[in-house]
Simulated scan of single mutants.
Amino acid sequence: MTPPDPESLRLLVLVGELGSIGAAAAELQVSQPSASKRLSRLERQLGLPLVQRTRRGCTLTAAGVMVCDWARQVLAHVDGLMNGVRALRAQQQATLRVAASMTIAEYLVPRWLSQLRVALPDVHVELDVANSVAVAEAVRHGGADIGFIETPTPPEGVSVRFVTRDRMIVVAPPGHPWTRLRRPLTATELAATPLIVREHGSGTRETLHRALTEVGAEPVTPLLELRSTTAVRNSVVAGAGPAGLSVLAVATDLAEHRLVEIPVADLDLRRPLHAVWRAGLRLTGSAAALLATATRTGD
């Protein structure tokens, strides 16, 4: 026996309460003939007479009264289920999980979120800051609704959209020997110098490494390997050594002469910044709104 559908049970309960198929049909906003057919189908499905029709209306049979009592219990559970689902959906729609690589998270995401909140003031944002590889993994496995990465080549298994372009530069503290050069540094000289770098998986590190290897200069072992852009920047300011960083991260330091940009000949350190989300899904709601904000700001 196929279980009856909830709407047929709801119709039966209303007929028992209102004493009329027409009144029950009006309550459910369906036609009376449609309601009558549904009740007949329910009786055939259960193999029981449920409704006794008279000229004055209709009443439930003895079997109909029992089925109606059970139907009320079933419908209470169905209504509880749907109320719970609606609450979960409302909670998910009101929470936007964002993952962003560190440079983007520190220097671009705050502006994007500020603009997003103007349009969607009730959205609660959870921001996870990690390197680009970890961001892609979070998106791929459903840990974030949308991510932003800095790697030159977008990862596989995610949907990708270009947001804007960033430029990396080589920086050194004032007084470093490179600051006294009267010519641009060569890529070979840069690759032969131990630098302060980010950890493996960082888009900043990958961009610099790829740019050097593309011109045939293999980087030597780093001087320091640190897990945040801020830590790299602070180490350079403190005089530990040079590094390659996004111009976003050091613009203020350059303006206030805490760091010096070191020109490098024939080395392209530009990089695209991308939004990523789970492959096969279409962004909707607050995630789509954030992507639109990021691309509009980037343009």
Rank of each mutant, 00 (worst) to 15 (best):
T2E: 15
T2A: 14
E7Y: 05
S8D: 12
L12T: 04
L14K: 03
G16N: 08
G22H: 14
A23M: 06
A25S: 11
A26K: 15
V30A: 02
Q32L: 03
P33R: 08
P33C: 07
A35M: 11
S36E: 09
S36Y: 06
S40M: 11
E43M: 05
G47M: 08
P49T: 11
R55G: 09
G57P: 05
L60T: 04
L60Q: 02
A63T: 04
M66G: 02
C68I: 01
A71N: 10
R72W: 03
H77Q: 14
D79N: 12
G84W: 02
A87G: 10
L88C: 06
L88A: 14
Q91M: 12
A99E: 05
A100S: 13
M102Q: 15
M102S: 10
A105I: 07
S114G: 15
A119L: 15
P121M: 12
E126K: 13
A134R: 15
V135F: 07
A138V: 00
A138E: 05
R140D: 01
H141R: 13
F148C: 07
T151N: 10
P154N: 11
P155H: 13
E156S: 14
G157S: 12
V160S: 04
R161P: 00
T164F: 12
T164E: 15
R165Q: 15
M168N: 10
V170R: 00
V171G: 03
A172H: 01
P173Q: 13
G175T: 11
H176I: 06
T179H: 08
R180T: 14
L185H: 05
T186V: 05
L190S: 00
V197S: 06
G203A: 05
T204Q: 04
E206G: 01
L208W: 07
H209C: 03
L212W: 04
E214R: 15
P222V: 06
P222A: 04
P222H: 06
L224V: 00
E225P: 00
R227E: 09
S228M: 03
T229V: 12
A231K: 13
V237L: 05
G241I: 10
P242E: 09
P242Q: 11
A243N: 06
S246C: 04
L248D: 07
V250W: 02
D253A: 09
P263A: 05
V264Y: 01
R271M: 12
P272C: 07
L273C: 09
H274N: 10
V276W: 00
R278H: 14
S286V: 04
A292I: 01
A294K: 09
T295S: 15
